[in-house]
């Protein structure tokens, strides 16, 4: 069994209203060093396979097709032992 850890974040060029609001809140709390906050999604996808190479290919397909909307989001992932 393998597991894909997938991270999806808004692209750099896209304003992240949630991130901006959290940054503002952190500033209010006195964390003046906070320059930027980007909020994204973290997903764990359990895979019924032991073939890493195939898993990479399949998870990329999953990300492109559904997990991320590449118009506004970037994704990256790693494959770990499930």
């Amino acid at each position: 069994m393998l597991k894909a850890i997938v991270y999806v974040t808004l692209r750099e060029s896209v304003l992240d209203p949630q991130g901006s609001a959290v940054k503002g809140a952190l500033h209010t709390l006195g964390f003046a060093e906070v320059a930027d906050v980007r909020i994204g999604k973290y997903m764990e996808v359990a895979l019924e396979t032991d073939d890493r190479e195939q898993a990479v290919e399949r998870v990329r397909e999953m990300a492109e097709k559904l997990l991320a909307n590449t118009v506004i989001e970037d994704y990256r992932f790693e494959i770990v032992e499930g």
Partner: peptide, 8 residues
């Protein structure tokens, strides 16, 4: 694509 309203 759609993003969250800027005002949240």
């Amino acid at each position: 694509a759609m993003l969250r309203n800027r005002s949240l």
